[in-house]
């Protein structure tokens, strides 16, 4: 197949249980910009079951065309089925560029589609552009984000990439936008892998090593203010409370909640250290956290040398402010 036959920028719009994932809508904005440079259209692929309410949404966010598959077999995400469907769509519509939001589903789905189509794929892009030859420039941060690599797929089509969520701004929803909506039927054979159960993330106590957000406290925190921690915790899915060694030694928390060399090693997305000075034994247990934030009265605390965001101040003032802001964020949705 010559690459000239491939045209248009396509975005896979991911929906879960009837809710379109914001990360894929964010990509529509970026797709728009690329399409303008290439003087082509933006299209969206949408897969699911009973999608009527959703099909226009991609148009509102900037798509010119929505191609959707509405099939009972597609009610829940199944990597095998979704891949088969998307491959059929790609074969039919031949996109020049095919972007997928880098959610967990997206990061799983995209490479299997690329492998099936034997085309190139770039993961977790944080920026896109078009080079002088009209190739998609895929910019991504390997080596733990220390560098930015510029990648192209010169020969194979479609040019596929996943994009890191929340990097691109969400385009404005414009209900007056019009576009074409196409319903596609695709063949879905019985998968050899099936989802048998789904458990929504519960708010019950999660072991600290499994938590995605850890609110951790040390000796600089008075347990009389424990309610602050709990309130804070409630804002995050899969969050939990942990602590440093002196707290456990003083018998205030069970050993299972201790982060550090002699406690547990944790790798949450967010590690919020409150009143923790940051002894090396402690850092050793949380050094691989994705985002480390710290609240501490002491500006010289070691933790401030090893965090992404540090707030110098009394937690008694900072946490209530934080809670207030988080409430504001939550209100619209």
């Amino acid at each position: 197949m010559s690459k000239e036959k491939f045209e248009g920028v396509y975005v896979y719009i991911e929906q879960r249980k009837g809710v379109i994932q914001e990360a894929s809508l964010q990509l529509l904005g970026e797709a728009r910009k690329l399409a303008e440079k290439l003087k082509t259209e933006v299209s969206a692929f949408l897969i699911g079951y009973q999608l009527k309410k959703l099909v226009k949404e991609p148009i509102y966010y900037g798509a010119d065309k929505v191609i959707y598959v509405d099939n009972k077999e597609c009610a829940n995400y199944n990597p095998e089925i979704y891949k088969t469907v998307l491959v059929q769509l790609v074969m039919k519509y031949k996109p020049e560029i095919f972007l997928i939001a880098g959610t967990k589903y997206g990061r799983e789905l995209a490479p299997s589609i690329a492998a099936d189509l034997e085309t190139g794929i770039t993961a977790d892009c944080t920026a896109f552009d078009i080079d002088e030859k009209g190739n998609l420039l895929q910019i991504r941060p390997p080596f733990g984000g220390r560098v930015h690599a510029y990648i192209i797929t010169p020969e194979k089509r479609p040019q596929m990439a996943t994009a890191r969520p929340n990097v691109f701004p969400l385009p404005e929803r414009n209900v007056s936008r019009k576009g074409e909506i196409i319903k596609e039927e695709t063949e879905v054979s019985k998968p050899s892998m099936a989802l048998i159960k789904f458990e929504k993330g519960s708010e019950a106590e999660i072991p600290i090593e499994k938590a995605e957000v850890l609110i951790s406290f040390g000796r600089g925190f008075n347990l009389e203010d424990a309610h602050l921690l709990e309130e804070l915790c409630d804002f995050f899915l899969k969050s939990s409370i942990s602590c440093s060694r002196p707290i456990v030694d003083a018998g205030l928390m069970p050993r299972s909640r201790q982060v550090g060399q002699t406690g547990k090693t944790v790798r949450p997305k967010l590690y919020l250290a409150i009143g923790i000075s940051g002894a090396i034994q402690h850092l050793a247990g949380m050094k691989d956290s994705k985002f480390i934030a710290a609240i501490n009265k002491d500006p010289n605390a070691e933790i401030f040398k090893f965090c992404d965001f540090g707030i110098i101040g009394d937690y008694k003032e900072v946490i209530p402010l934080l809670i207030e802001e988080l409430k504001k964020k939550q209100a619209p949705s």
Binding site: P299, F304, C307, D308, G310, I311, G313, L321
Partner: peptide, 8 residues
């Protein structure tokens, strides 16, 4: 690590 340190 971004080391963005601010006063409260």
């Amino acid at each position: 690590r971004r080391l963005e340190i601010r006063e409260a």
